[in-house]
Design a protein around this nucleic acid. Sequence first.
DNA 1: ATCATTCTCAACACGGTGTCGAAAATAAGA
DNA 2: TCTTATTTTCGACACCGTGTTGAGAATGAT
Lengths: 183, 183
Amino acid sequence: MVFREKPISQVTIDELAGAAGIARSGFYFYFESKQALLAALVDQVIGENDLEMAEWLASDGLDRAALRLGLGRALARWKVDGRWLREAFINPDPGPDVQQIRDRLVADGCSAFSRRIERDARAGLAVMGRPQLLATMAVNLRSVTFADAYAHPAAHPDDELLDTLTDAILRLVYGVTPDHRSN
Amino acid sequence: MVFREKPISQVTIDELAGAAGIARSGFYFYFESKQALLAALVDQVIGENDLEMAEWLASDGLDRAALRLGLGRALARWKVDGRWLREAFINPDPGPDVQQIRDRLVADGCSAFSRRIERDARAGLAVMGRPQLLATMAVNLRSVTFADAYAHPAAHPDDELLDTLTDAILRLVYGVTPDHRSN
DNA sequence: ATCATTCTCAACACGGTGTCGAAAATAAGA
DNA sequence: TCTTATTTTCGACACCGTGTTGAGAATGAT
């Protein structure tokens, strides 16, 4: 995967084609542009992301273990593919093709989280704001933290990062953190 | 400001020069490249950002009003210049020139916040993790929330966004939110 | 008026993109 | 097996934005 090695803007179609063993002009037989290729990649990520967070989204209340598990899996993926993941999910202007698919994916992720929060609120759990807004913030905090973890790998140990992020999200949404030091 | 109108990648040097009333090749007399111009712009933002957050950084503990004031000023700026601010501060690959200046600015902002948190911790206030990490998360949450507010202006009213963000940051760092409904 | 500095710009070379049509490879049908 | 259709490859071309150069115009000081 060439996108792991350098910024997407610096990856030339010639390289992509070369890595695939075909001539540059042959690339256009498979994809309309570099953006279209990236869009296809992003599309592939959709399913994986849902799977990563499945336990958390299915559970109720402050299920810290489920959240931490999902975040851990996501971080592992970012450690590998962070280079292009952040260019696809963080970059404000990844081109129309990518933007459309990306926005849908992000919106889906936010509303899934939002529904979970609403469910908790209906169950009587305290919630610290409008579910939609809280979910958006949490999802964005997640991506940006992982992107930062990729950019500065040595800044914080993974364990600490994950613990802090997990608690931060719980605190952000529910205002409290379960006492997990007990396990 | 041409950068307010469309993605920077789509702004051609010819347009920039045209807007300044000179020929394209004349642009290179003033800046080495489009990136260099953007870097100069980012450099200009440094001071303003510090000013916006001055009260908060100077105060102690959960001074909600000061934080909310600073965030409000920042949001106002993002509402105007969000288009290029997010491309300069969120985009993972804004080119080497911008990246260098941007990273320094972000690092400064984080460490200023971090020092404030350490000060609070020394004063006996509970703090929910390593100051450096919490500060990074808070600063990143701020930018990404503002970027999102620019991208989806109608999603949430500004007041609600600011209130939620203010409380979210306080909860993120200190674990609690002062009861501001009293004023 | 002279000279130096500042500023402007037309012309050029370069590199990456996307298109086209012709050929090669592969598969399908008789 | 030979023919025909479909899929896949690629060379050649035109296009556009970038950055450089060197020559000339404007400005300003002596």
